[in-house]
Design a protein around this nucleic acid. Structure first.
Lengths: 345, 345
DNA sequence: GAGGGTGTTGCAAGGTTTTGCGATAATGTT
DNA sequence: AACATTATCGCAAAACCTTGCAACACCCTC
């Protein structure tokens, strides 16, 4: 919220230099540039000219990636709901390019005058921040303290006083595993996302609970971690087949499940006859794979609507919520049985 | 691209008044305010002298929808390339909500200080604007005249002097059909997008050329138009099966092709044994369907890079292209043979 | 070690936007 | 009807940002 001169003073340079840094002009030493940028991180630059920042009718949507089709699906649902309420949306892919992280995107959006933001599966769901990067527990808290309006979608965290809308991941893991147990499976693997992902941990807890209830093995050797991608799914399945040889697997996402099915297909393993596969998300294409994917559906439309409604409620000065305390809405996943799950041979 | 003074002149008020309207300050008559706002709608305000607004390092990406996975794929490729060149991206889904059209999104982006825009499959590719909406041939031309930097991706149009990067749609149609002819097919249908879509028309021309070269039927009864979606693909196939009963079809997009394969699956028609299917785009998931989809690949990464590079070239004041004339880059599609195409029985 | 080149930075001029203040018109009050 | 009050709007000064230019430092070459 500072003008150019204050930033210049804080960085110990002239106003011109700050201007040059902001405009990405040549002729600034890299070291100086970094110093200015770090000051900028502390006191965000807000040109006075952008007075039109108050009620712009624009909100920001932050998704971690676009390769996994759930995120475009969420984005479209969020945009549609927002448009109906008179807001237009700006979508940002926070892991698109290496250099810009979620935090920088947020700052950029704020400078562009968004009124509020929806974070879909935000950074914070990575429990352990990757090594080398400074953990910033205070990052969201700072935004919150600055009065930035935000809502988390599938980013529930008790550590932060942010309203959130989420599926019950643990229940999802439980229901998927339960479904396979009822079909008669006994060796049920978990094709999981990275270990640091909180949703994957929660699903694992549900998976383990269902297995233990039925005195079935739920050890770490039945869990294969891999990146969130189709390739990752394939790798994880390959690992499981080579070790514990499960008759069924649940996956962290439909996207990974597609990779699992492809790997099975390439190995000549028939799905669902020799291997049952259960995904998560119910992406629009899940019904179009063959065999059509059995999955746990997130109610994408309803969740998006709930997130947008809650955000808009906080934006509107008239009916603004007085208490900003712990608004949390948990949706139940829904089991959608298609063709990829069947009793074991 | 107008400064405060121009807007003031157009609205017949002083600069101060416009400033007050933009900053939502009190002391402006409602009637005057509306007049200024309506002028603002015609000539988007782009603060000139103002700080970080000239070189914001932000570009806008406009895609028509997110359901078809090509668009997220293009978006991600564009963002990645832009990020490497130091630009961050704002993504807009122009058909997300009913009320906002592409034009309004463009205005919004301009007001948010984007330096340039990439239009992916823009409105202009719809040759006949849907009834009821005013055709605006001058819309892009006006932007161009205002000096807005833009590049079309798969939106080639000779009517407009906009740089564009595109696949050769006609060649794609030709190559796909050629492939099926070489496999021995004789009744080859075309599951097409809406008739007003220029790319679909071009593909049809290529399809017809290949067929006529080989004295095979290329009449309108072999073409089924449907919306660009998986459902649309299914409907179009159903129509073709009930009429001309082709042994192979090419489709306007992989997304439609997935719908085609599902419809075939539901009717008990085996792909590729009884029906060969060729898609277009080579979306990342095309390799993950089963049978894996034979398709014509757009070189998504290269095209995105070319579009971004060309845009950035025009943005950079140092190496700005003097001539803005007809830059067009046409990419050859690449035939990717997978499992969904085979000789007819 | 001197000279020229290159890169970096602040200064000051120039252009743009904001805002205090006064002029004018509209409305209300006696 | 005359006066007071308020709302509206333009002028001009102040504040702010950009950019050409010059000063300074550093490095390489001869």
């Amino acid at each position: 919220m500072s003008g150019l001169s204050e930033i210049a003073r804080a960085a110990g340079v002239s106003i011109s230099t700050v201007s040059r840094v902001l405009n990405r002009r040549a002729g600034v030493n890299e070291e100086t540039r970094q110093r200015v940028l770090s000051v900028l991180a502390e006191m965000p630059y807000t040109p006075r000219g952008l007075g039109a920042l108050q009620r712009t009718g624009v909100i920001g949507l932050l998704v971690p990636e676009l390769s996994n089709p759930v995120f475009p699906a969420f984005a479209e649902a969020l945009e549609t709901r927002a448009a109906r309420l008179g807001y237009s949306s700006l979508l940002c892919n926070t892991r698109s390019g290496a250099p810009m992280g979620e935090e920088e995107y947020v700052r950029m959006l704020l400078a562009r005058g968004v009124e509020g933001m929806v974070f879909v599966s935000p950074e914070i769901t990575n429990v352990e921040v990757p090594l080398g990067q400074a953990p910033r527990p205070s990052y969201y808290a700072k935004l919150l303290a600055d009065g930035v309006h935000m809502v988390f979608l599938n980013g529930a965290t008790p550590a932060l006083d942010v309203p959130d809308v989420t599926v019950d991941e643990q229940l999802a893991g439980y229901m998927a595993t339960r479904h396979l147990i009822e079909l008669g499976h006994q060796r049920i693997g978990f094709v999981s996302g990275p270990a640091r992902s909180l949703p994957s941990r929660l699903k694992r807890a549900g998976w383990a609970a269902a297995l233990e209830e039925n005195h079935l093995p739920a050890g770490g050797e039945y869990v294969a971690h891999a990146p969130f991608s189709a390739e990752g799914g394939g790798q994880a399945l390959a690992h499981l087949l080579d070790t514990v040889n499960p008759t069924a697997v649940i996956c962290s996402s439909d996207h990974m499940a597609l990779g699992v099915m492809r790997e099975a297909h390439q190995r000549g393993i028939s799905v669902p006859d020799e291997l049952s596969v259960v995904g998560f998300d119910d992406i629009p294409l899940a019904a179009y794979s063959s065999p059509a994917l059995t999955t746990l559906a997130q109610p994408i439309e309803e969740m998006a609507a709930a997130a947008i409604d809650e955000l808009v409620l906080r934006l509107d000065p008239d009916r603004r919520r007085q208490s900003t305390d712990n608004y949390t809405r948990v949706f139940r996943p829904r089991l959608v049985v298609r063709e990829s799950s069947a009793p074991p041979k």
